[in-house]
């Protein structure tokens, strides 16, 4: 037999390799198919209602006609407020856990708890928000209570992602700073945060889509089926009022309102998707820009 010639055992190995490759590819297609199917189906169903008037007008005729403006602006409200609360607190807590806290059982337990909280279903956060903010803190069913509930829901994830971003800053940068006599705070401000900022922002922005999409936490604490607003004003909801929101609106249209044309809930869903897609693209863009600026 000639040297380096293929043997039946080798042939079998190559066949198995080809088969494995085909299976992996098949799985990928299996994942992509429903994704494209969803988007295509939504767009097709929503087509009759997809226009600017739909976005900028209020629902009419018991929500069987008209647009989604109050819900859209309500979602923007809730998301902005919740992140204004969750982002600073979450980032600072993560800085404490990563840069200040010693590695002892208590802090390990806290880290564990944060990771577990990040996995708690949103309906549980909703119940907590109802008990803590609506009743105990006497905020009532309101924009404020709903935003705080969303903040509680997003905060553990922000802490976890910020911690990852901080940990990815090489330790020898910190050592270099300390050896020049920098305090912890100086080290964090001058070196650690500037190098982690792209990761931190990405983590925060990804929570925007989560806060925008969840229904349960706001349904329990401050979102309503319908609320008439003045379409001219940019800040139509007061903090102690209830508001509409896209995810809630979609739920209402799909389950609570008989006789709605199929295009209306589908267009609402498309809008929600577009919002999430836009925010995620912004996150990716921002990360690219910050990475190239702080090139190392």
């Amino acid at each position: 037999m000639s040297r380096f010639a293929s043997t039946p055992a080798v042939e079998a190995k190559l066949r198995r390799e080809a088969a494995a490759g085909a299976i992996f590819l098949g799985m990928l297609i299996l994942i992509l198919l429903p994704l494209f199917a969803i988007v295509a189906y939504l767009l097709w169903q929503a087509a009759p209602s997809l226009n600017w008037r739909f976005l900028f007008s209020a629902p009419t005729h018991g929500m069987r006609e008209g647009g989604v403006w109050p819900a859209f602006i309500g979602t923007l409200y809730l998301v902005t407020l919740s992140l204004a609360v969750a982002a600073p607190i979450g980032v600072l807590a993560a800085v404490y856990l990563t840069e200040y806290a010693r590695d002892n059982w208590f802090n390990r337990a806290v880290n564990m708890a944060v990771l577990n909280l990040a996995g708690v279903p949103s309906i549980v956060h909703a119940l907590f928000g109802l008990g803590a903010f609506v009743y105990a803190a006497r905020l009532g069913y309101s924009v404020l209570a709903a935003s705080l509930t969303l903040a509680i829901m997003t905060m553990p994830v922000i802490i976890a992602s910020t911690r990852q971003a901080l940990l990815s800053v090489p330790h020898n940068f910190r050592e270099a700073c300390w050896n020049l006599g920098a305090s912890r705070l100086q080290t964090i401000r001058t070196i650690v945060l500037p190098n982690a900022i792209s990761g931190i922002l990405t983590g925060i922005i990804l929570q925007v889509s989560r806060a925008a999409g969840e229904t349960a936490p706001i349904m329990f604490t401050g979102a309503v089926f319908y609320k008439a607003i003045d379409p001219g004003t940019l800040f139509p909801y007061a903090l102690d009022e209830q508001c509409m929101a896209l995810s809630m609106h979609l739920y209402t249209l799909s389950t609570q309102t008989p006789g709605v044309a199929a295009s209306i809930p589908n267009a609402t869903a498309v809008l929600l998707l577009a919002l999430v897609f836009l925010v995620n693209s912004a996150a990716i863009g921002l990360r690219t820009i910050l990475r190239s600026r702080g090139k190392w």
Binding site: N172, F173, C177, L180
Partner: peptide, 20 residues
């Protein structure tokens, strides 16, 4: 103060570690 001490006692590392 360790911070003042480190001003007077500087350190150079095995892997050059300039700040970014």
């Amino acid at each position: 103060s360790p911070l003042e001490l480190r001003k007077a006692v500087g350190m150079v590392f095995q892997r050059p570690n300039p700040l970014p």
